[in-house]
């Protein structure tokens, strides 16, 4: 993991360097472009604040009621049998339906265990390697009225399972 962290340290600075350098070579007013883009970014953040607020309130209520802890305790033996920490199980399940709801759970996990704990690491990697299965499929197939989706679901579930497995392995390494 140390080497991976070392590599990760380089990617952002190099990418920023490359993008700004490319813009300068293309003789663009890079700073003006940046400011215009940053404005769009701020708008996006303001737009997601209500969503995030609703979700964090929902997850906080669930956490405060003791439901999440009891669920984790209930799932712990089964989850341990396949090498998963219990809080990861509801997360990988919810993630198939809604990535925003999963984000609420992620933030709850970070708050409880910290992003650098083993559970925090699995969560960080898991959330970065697959998308919402059912949401994505329904949006796309509905848009062109497709009813028979053939092997799409199987393929998406295989990719998601692979994601859980590889996240646990990488976080252990």
């Amino acid at each position: 993991m140390d080497f991976l962290v070392f590599l990760s340290d380089f990617i952002m600075p190099l990418m920023i360097f490359y993008i700004v350098g490319y813009g300068v070579l293309a003789s663009r007013p890079v700073y003006d472009d940046f400011v215009r883009g940053a404005q769009k970014g701020l708008k996006i953040t303001v737009e997601i604040l209500p969503t995030l607020c609703g979700l964090l309130v929902g997850v906080s209520i669930l956490r405060a009621s003791g439901f999440l802890d009891d669920l984790s305790a209930l799932l712990a033996p089964a989850a341990a049998a396949v090498g998963l920490p219990a809080p990861i199980v509801p997360l990988s399940f919810i993630k198939m339906f809604s990535s925003s709801a999963a984000t609420g759970l992620v933030l709850d996990i970070f708050k409880e265990y910290g992003p650098d704990s083993r559970i925090g690491w699995i969560t960080s990697i898991l959330m970065s390697c697959t998308e919402t299965v059912f949401y994505t499929m329904s949006v796309y197939f509905m848009s062109v009225h497709i009813k028979k989706t053939r092997y799409t679901l199987a393929g998406a579930l295989i990719a998601s399972l692979a994601g859980v497995a590889v996240s646990v392995l990488l976080a252990a390494g």
């Binding site: 993008i19 813009g23 472009d33 940046f34 883009g37 997601i48 964090l56």
Partner: peptide, 30 residues
């Protein structure tokens, strides 16, 4: 607390997202 956390998180996100979309604007226009 959940509602409060959402606002704090958006403050952090605002900076990161603005940085990112700013860079992407450069990448697109160049």
């Amino acid at each position: 607390a959940g509602a409060r956390d959402a606002v704090n998180l958006c403050l952090t996100m605002a900076g990161v997202t603005a940085l990112w979309t700013g860079l992407m604007e450069i990448a697109e226009r160049s």
